[in-house]
């Protein structure tokens, strides 16, 4: 999926053929516990990749590695052609400085299971915090843009509210708007609907579906198999720190090849 759909991040000419995320033998350990045991994955531009698997399989850890929230211990991980955590200079790799890491993170949006909105700030300030503080964007236009984004996620009337006055589903949609305000080239979703009441899940998934339709590159860690089938371009099943199976959602979800995929799907579907 390399066709750059319009609407998000105009890719530079040189990087147009490069996949958005490319992982080769990515390893990660916490002490002696090996969480990722050599992950290979490619996410094309505009692709929606759904990561599924039992808890503890390393899905979230992998997602966090892409955003520099975790450091990888082995292998290679590149976002938009640039290595995560390093800058190449001649034949050497230089570890990124704090401000360089921040600049990289600013290009990637992330949505968390527990929303993590800033509770001391209004909904509008939550959404403008990134553009105004990180990108030093002027306040007025940032607010207009934030209102626009909030309207898009169906929360135009909540701009002045504080996060704890909103339902979980509304908070998660604000979190999506907050991430979008940074004009990310890639959106990471870490179980965005797992902390929600069942009847609130739909609204959040609708927003994500719209986003996918507009051509956003997305990696979604999820337990929503319906969403994965409908919206995902690829489904990756992970277990025990390895990719067990990946491919077309309908294929993987209805006709899994691997025993472990079968037994997992039997439990969740």
């Amino acid at each position: 999926m390399t066709d750059a759909r319009p609407g998000y991040g105009s890719p530079s000419v040189s990087s147009i053929g490069v996949p958005m995320v490319e992982a080769r033998r990515v390893q990660k350990s916490y002490g002696r516990l090996e969480v990722l045991k050599g992950i290979d994955m490619t996410v094309g531009r505009g692709e929606v990749l759904c990561l599924i698997g039992p808890s503890g399989s390393g899905k979230s850890t992998f997602l966090r590695c892409i955003n520099h929230l975790e450091k990888i211990d082995g292998g290679e991980l590149a976002v938009d052609g640039d290595l995560v955590g390093y800058r190449q200079g001649g034949d050497k790799l230089y570890e990124l400085k704090d401000n360089e890491v921040c600049a990289k993170r600013a290009e990637i949006g992330m949505v968390f299971q527990r929303f993590n909105l800033f509770p001391h700030m209004s909904v509008l300030d939550n959404v403008t915090s990134g553009p105004v503080w990180v990108k030093k964007a002027p306040g007025g236009p940032s607010k207009d843009r934030a209102r626009e984004l909030l309207a898009r996620v169906g929360l135009a009337d909540k701009v002045a509210n504080y996060p704890n006055q909103l339902s979980g589903g509304q908070q998660q949609r604000v979190a999506i708007a907050r991430a979008l305000a940074m004009d990310p080239k890639l959106m990471l979703f870490d179980e965005p609907t797992s902390a929600l009441d069942p009847e609130l899940v739909g609204d959040v998934l609708d927003v994500m579906r719209d986003l996918a339709r507009d051509g956003m590159t997305m990696i979604v860690v999820t337990h929503e198999m319906g969403f994965a089938r409908e919206v995902g371009d690829t489904v990756v099943f992970m277990d025990g720190g390895v990719v067990v199976e990946q491919g077309d959602p309908t294929e993987v979800l209805t006709n899994p090849q691997h025993e472990r995929t079968k037994s997992f799907l039997a439990k969740v579907l």
């Binding site: 921040c102 993170r105 993590n116 800033f118 990134g130 979190a175």
Partner: peptide, 20 residues
């Protein structure tokens, strides 16, 4: 989660401490 959310928006450690 607050520090992580701030980090994911590209905020530096100092900014996160002061504002979040």
């Amino acid at each position: 989660g607050q520090t992580e959310a701030a980090a994911s928006l590209g905020m530096s450690k100092g900014l996160t401490l002061r504002k979040i």
